[in-house]
């Protein structure tokens, strides 16, 4: 057999395999293109149209919807509310989540599965159901107000439901499992011997935590921060149920514009902004975490 025949055989095999791969991956790709990418393109195109009250949508190529998002004080307020709610929830999630992630990462096998289930279960029980739980606690005749009245601490129920505080509590509880899981996977990979070394060299446990564990866990903290911020910005059920009709965040506003008011161009612009910020933050998170790992690796390399 000549060398030429061998190569052509190999080429044929490679070609067959390539077509095989194409056949395997095409159906899933087609679905994502047809049901995700095309709709998103359409959404973007419509965000450049004009909304005329009384005649639905007018074909146009204008950025006025995007300009309105920033110049209209109503929408500016919606965006500012969304940003500060997402930011406060994220801060609480990181501070409250780190010890939980640490304990989870260092737990022994049996305990670990139980704790993991305790984190994962709330994650997949709908946000509406969890909001119902907070209503039971925070309502005017809820557990908290009833107990405080019975104890004689307050005479009139304190209004917590339908305040920003209720929304922050609700979204924090929704995001916390995601943040804990993200940070625990990083902490899990930190070699315990490093902490042991710091301790045996005379650093106290607190100092070891802040000088060794926390810096090594930074990729997890960064990823958790950005994930929580993204989830907070896109929250729908929690602000609607716990914030009430007066409380406006971006995701419920998108729904109202599109479905209730049929203002597609404006709703599309708002949705597109939400997606753009989300995708940019995801990419930044990815790059930051990678850069952090590269730097740590570079420092760990022995000097030549």
């Amino acid at each position: 057999m000549s060398a030429g025949a061998l190569t052509s055989d190999a080429t044929a095999a490679r070609a067959r395999r390539r077509f095989g791969a194409a056949g395997l991956i095409t159906p899933a790709t087609l679905l994502v293109v047809l049901i995700l990418l095309l709709p998103l393109l359409l959404l973007f195109r419509y965000s450049l149209n004009r909304f005329e009250p009384g005649q639905f949508m007018v074909e146009a190529l204008t950025v006025e919807n995007y300009v309105n998002l920033v110049t209209d004080s109503y929408y500016r307020n919606v965006m500012l509310t969304t940003l500060w709610v997402a930011a406060s929830c994220t801060l609480i999630c990181i501070v409250a989540g780190f010890p939980a992630a640490y304990v989870l990462a260092r737990a022994r096998s049996r305990w670990k599965s139980i704790l993991l289930l305790a984190v994962v279960l709330p994650l997949f029980v709908g946000n509406a159901v969890r909001a119902a739980g907070w209503m039971v606690l925070l309502g005017n005749r809820g557990v908290l107000n009833s107990s405080l009245t019975w104890l004689g601490v307050i005479e009139q129920p304190v209004q917590i439901m339908y305040t920003p505080l209720a929304v922050v509590i609700g979204i924090t509880a929704v995001n916390l499992p995601f943040v804990v899981l993200t940070m625990q996977s990083v902490i899990e990979s930190i070699d315990r011997a490093l902490e042991e070394a710091a301790l045996s060299l005379g650093a106290g446990p607190v100092r070891t935590f802040f000088k060794v564990t926390l810096p090594l866990a930074m990729p997890g903290v960064i990823a958790g921060t950005i994930l929580s911020f993204i989830l907070g910005m896109n929250a729908y059920a929690t602000p609607v149920l716990l914030g009430g009709p007066q409380f406006q965040m971006m995701a419920p506003t998108v729904y109202k514009r599109i479905v209730e008011q049929a203002n597609w161009p404006f709703g599309a612009a708002l949705a597109f902004l939400l997606m753009a910020v989300t995708l940019i933050l995801s990419t930044v998170s990815h790059l930051l975490v990678q850069r952090h790992y590269r730097r740590t690796m570079a420092r760990a390399e022995p000097a030549h």
Binding site: L38, L40, L43, M233, I258, A271
Partner: peptide, 14 residues
Amino acid sequence: VVPGIVIGTSLYIY
């Protein structure tokens, strides 16, 4: 990665 609310909006229009 794309937020659920955005997927829902775009699919509804589509």
